Simulated assay, not measured.
Amino acid sequence: MKSQLTCFIFLICFSLGFSQNGKILSKELINLSETSIWSKLTTNNELKPDYKHLDALNFYTITYESDGHKVNGIITEPKKEGTYPVVIFNRGGNRDYGSLTIATIIFSVSKLAEQGYVIIASNYRTQDEFGGADLNDVLNLFETIKEIDKADESKVGMFGWSRGGMMTYLALKASDKIQTAIIGNGPSNLFAEISFRPKMETLVYAQCIPNYAANKDAELKKRSAIFWADKLNKDSSLLILSGTKDKRVDPKQANIMAEELERINYDFKLMTFETDHGFRDKRDELYATTIAWFDKELKHKK
C-alpha cells in the first residue's frame, strides 16, 4: 500500500512538472535608461526621433520553464491597456552568438510592437541543439502567452530571422497554432548551407547538433524545410524575405523554397530586396513590410 502511494505521488509530481512548461518563473520590467544601449537611442538623455516609439512600450525580461530548463526571454507590449495579437520572435545565431538582448528587440521588432502587438522572444536553452530539442523553447511559449494579460492567444504569429527562420519552419511543422509567419534570410536546406559556407558545418552543426557525425544526413534533413514543405501547417500563411546580397545564407535557398511551396499550393509570398543578411540599408522597408503583413494576415484577419 505504501509503495502504491509513493508511486501515485511520484506520478502526480511527474505530471505537474511537465504541466509547468511555459510557466513564467520571473518577470522584471526593463528600465531602458539603465541599459547599455541608452546612449545610442538618445541625445541629451532624450529619445531620438527614430526611437520615440519606445515611450509607448514596456519591456520585460523573463525566465520561463521549458522541459525542466530555465530559459530566458523578453516580452514587449504596448503600455496602453487592451489585448493585442502576439508575435513570437525567433532570434538568429547560435549559443552566445546573436544572443537575445534588449537591443535585438528594439532594432528588430519594437516598431511592430508599437503598432499594437505583444512580442515574446526566447533566447533558447543553454545547451543549443540548433533546431533539436531547443525547438520546445519556442513551442512552450504558447503556454507562456496564456500568462500575459495583454496577449490575445487566439491571434498568434511568428517572425524568425536567419537561424530563427529555420526555427520558424520547424514550428510551422510541429504546431497548428501559428496563423501566419515571416521568415527573413532563413535557411531551408542545411546541406546547401554547408556548400555555401563550409565553416557552418565545423563551427556550428558539428558542435551543436547531437550525434552529428553518426547521423549527419538524418539530422540535417530534420532541420531543412525543403525536404518536408508539405508538412507545414496548411492553415497558416508565410512571407519569405530574402536579401539578394546575403553572404550568410545563400539567397538561392529562398527561391528554391518558393518553388516548392508553389508546387504544393502553399499560401505564401516571396519578397526580395537588394541588401545584405541583416537588411542594414533597408530597415525602413523591412519595418513597413512586416507591419503590413501582420496587420493583414493576423490583426485584421477573420
Score class of each variant (00 low, 15 high):
residue 1 M to N: 02
residue 5 L to P: 00
residue 6 T to R: 10
residue 11 L to Y: 11
residue 12 I to G: 06
residue 14 F to Q: 13
residue 16 L to Q: 08
residue 20 Q to S: 15
residue 20 Q to T: 15
residue 22 G to D: 14
residue 24 I to F: 10
residue 26 S to W: 08
residue 27 K to I: 03
residue 29 L to C: 05
residue 31 N to I: 01
residue 34 E to Y: 14
residue 37 I to M: 04
residue 40 K to I: 11
residue 41 L to R: 06
residue 42 T to M: 02
residue 42 T to I: 11
residue 45 N to S: 06
residue 46 E to D: 08
residue 46 E to L: 11
residue 47 L to V: 15
residue 48 K to P: 15
residue 50 D to K: 15
residue 51 Y to F: 04
residue 54 L to C: 14
residue 60 Y to N: 04
residue 62 I to M: 14
residue 63 T to K: 05
residue 63 T to G: 14
residue 65 E to P: 10
residue 66 S to L: 09
residue 69 H to I: 00
residue 73 G to N: 09
residue 73 G to R: 09
residue 76 T to K: 12
residue 76 T to S: 06
residue 80 K to A: 06
residue 80 K to M: 01
residue 81 E to T: 10
residue 85 P to N: 14
residue 90 N to A: 05
residue 90 N to V: 10
residue 91 R to L: 07
residue 93 G to D: 01
residue 94 N to A: 07
residue 94 N to T: 07
residue 94 N to G: 13
residue 94 N to S: 14
residue 96 D to C: 12
residue 98 G to Q: 14
residue 99 S to I: 02
residue 100 L to V: 11
residue 101 T to C: 09
residue 102 I to L: 00
residue 107 F to K: 06
residue 107 F to W: 03
residue 109 V to Y: 01
residue 111 K to T: 00
residue 112 L to H: 10
residue 115 Q to Y: 10
residue 118 V to T: 03
residue 118 V to S: 12
residue 120 I to N: 12
residue 120 I to P: 13
residue 124 Y to P: 04
residue 128 D to H: 10
residue 128 D to E: 07
residue 133 A to C: 01
residue 134 D to Q: 03
residue 136 N to I: 12
residue 138 V to Y: 04
residue 139 L to F: 08
residue 140 N to Y: 04
residue 140 N to M: 11
residue 142 F to G: 01
residue 147 E to S: 12
residue 152 D to R: 10
residue 152 D to N: 11
residue 155 K to C: 02
residue 156 V to T: 10
residue 161 W to P: 11
residue 165 G to E: 03
residue 165 G to F: 01
residue 165 G to P: 09
residue 171 A to R: 08
residue 173 K to R: 09
residue 180 T to I: 02
residue 180 T to P: 01
residue 180 T to Y: 00
residue 181 A to L: 09
residue 184 G to N: 11
residue 185 N to W: 11
residue 186 G to P: 14
residue 188 S to Y: 03
residue 188 S to H: 15
residue 189 N to T: 15
residue 191 F to Q: 00
residue 193 E to D: 06
residue 193 E to T: 07
residue 194 I to E: 07
residue 195 S to D: 11
residue 196 F to Q: 08
residue 198 P to D: 10
residue 209 I to D: 06
residue 209 I to K: 02
residue 209 I to Y: 13
residue 210 P to S: 08
residue 217 D to R: 13
residue 223 R to L: 09
residue 228 W to I: 01
residue 232 L to D: 14
residue 232 L to S: 01
residue 236 S to A: 10
residue 240 I to K: 04
residue 244 T to H: 13
residue 244 T to K: 03
residue 246 D to C: 00
residue 248 R to M: 08
residue 250 D to L: 09
residue 258 A to F: 02
residue 261 L to N: 15
residue 263 R to D: 06
residue 263 R to N: 15
residue 267 D to F: 08
residue 269 K to G: 00
residue 270 L to I: 13
residue 270 L to G: 07
residue 275 T to F: 01
residue 279 F to Y: 08
residue 283 R to C: 00
residue 286 L to V: 02
residue 286 L to K: 04
residue 289 T to L: 08
residue 290 T to I: 02
residue 291 I to T: 12
residue 291 I to R: 07
residue 294 F to M: 02
residue 298 L to M: 14
residue 298 L to S: 00
residue 300 H to F: 05
residue 301 K to H: 14
residue 301 K to L: 13
residue 301 K to C: 03
residue 302 K to V: 02
residue 302 K to W: 13
